[in-house]
Amino acid sequence: MKKIITILCIAAALLTGVSCGKKSETAVKDIKSKSGIEMVYLPGGEFIMGEGNNARKVKLSPFYIDKYEVTQGMFKKIDLPDPSHFKGDKNPAEMIAWVNAAMYCNERSLEEGLTPAYNEDTWECNFNANGYRLPTEAEWEYAARAGSKEKYFFGNDQKNLKNYAIYNKNSSGKTAPAGSRKPNPWGLYDMYGNVAEWCNDFFAADYYKSSPFADPRGPAKGKERVLRGGSWNDPEEFFSSSARAMDGSINDACILRDTIGFRCVRNAE
């Protein structure tokens, strides 16, 4: 009898603890940021990142991610220089060097009273800051997969790509307004195509062979940053949730590309 009472007490205590402690959301949820930007809350979790021999299990903490790629209108709204080639307020910002994407993140953080994540002298990311930053490569793939294990978030049939992505067969040689195709199951638009998206990570081909299981953040140093998602200029063979790319246009104005843009994330509190 004593044992039963003890078990009941422990169970009660545990339940109380859970209900009184900070409860983290378990469902994907649409939100609006303080400045009115549409984002999606992604609960933390485990998933298989990569494919084939490179596949490995990764665990992530919860975070918010932009529903759309950052648009030229969003740049204008906070009065930042926008070098985009294909003009249009609803089109994604492109010709964005990695440093300028990070700078946008900092300005958006200041706009919303958050602590900027990037040190503008070193461009190092403070992952403890509550401000905006670029997604880690793992966060990007987790968001793109949206719980799927197949090649694409819509399965394995490449024919369906046209419904979800702006790529070289349907782009007319330029970007399209953000959100012109269907979203993925978590409500994120243009995860494939339109503009390739900067991640926070430096690129290393073999990083995920030895990366940490929880919240991997990429190599400490490198010359190129990771790009994910492919662009309006890429052929359909390029696309998949695990396809990796990289670029060295981190801060060189002479090699800006009209195929590169980004979206922001921030830690869920």
Partner: peptide
Amino acid sequence: SESTRRFSMESWAT
């Protein structure tokens, strides 16, 4: 300078 909000070192930001 293109932006009145903050300084940019970018040559093209004009």
